[in-house]
């Protein structure tokens, strides 16, 4: 696991570094969520709205919109896919779940990529992802933190 300026880059998944999105491929499906950098930049979440499972999302489209005290915006997925499941229950229970556990309980959606191999090819993993994230964290001048309570 890479930790740089307090920001965790979990090793077991792919990343869209510019979009601050993690993607974990699970067979023909992919679970997606916000990275540590994403939740830190956004600050404490106050709301989230999910797109409905069954919907098809074009490359660059969004699976959800999130709101914090200072910003509203979409969570983009860089590849075309169908939404299979969303993590509504976890966010219903605890809207800060992504601020506490962005790589675990705070996942956002499970999608079925139209073309998993092409989806993977557009993402970074392993040391390449860690290296790109270190550069991004420096560029953003961000130090990550999580909600503790």
């Amino acid at each position: 696991m890479t930790v740089y300026r307090g920001c965790v880059v979990a090793p077991d998944r792919h990343y869209d570094v510019e979009g601050d999105l993690w993607v974990r491929f699970e067979g023909e499906l992919a679970r997606v969520g916000m990275t540590d950098v994403a939740q830190t930049r956004m600050g404490k979440m106050v709301s989230i709205r999910f797109k409905k499972p069954g919907r098809h999302v074009a490359a660059g489209g969004s699976v959800a919109t999130v709101e914090s005290a200072k910003w509203v915006g979409p969570i983009h997925v860089p590849f075309a896919c169908e939404i299979v499941d969303v993590n509504r229950e976890a966010y219903d229970r605890d809207i800060l779940i992504a601020n506490r556990d962005p790589y675990g309980e705070g996942w956002v959606a499970v999608v079925r990529p139209d073309d998993p191999e092409a989806a993977k090819a557009g993402l970074l993993e392993g040391e390449a992802a860690a290296e790109a994230y270190r550069a991004r964290i420096d560029e953003l001048d961000v130090n990550c933190f999580r909600c503790a309570d």
Partner: peptide
């Protein structure tokens, strides 16, 4: 009337 989660 989009449904949304209530803010905290």
């Amino acid at each position: 009337h989009l449904d949304g989660l209530p803010a905290s």
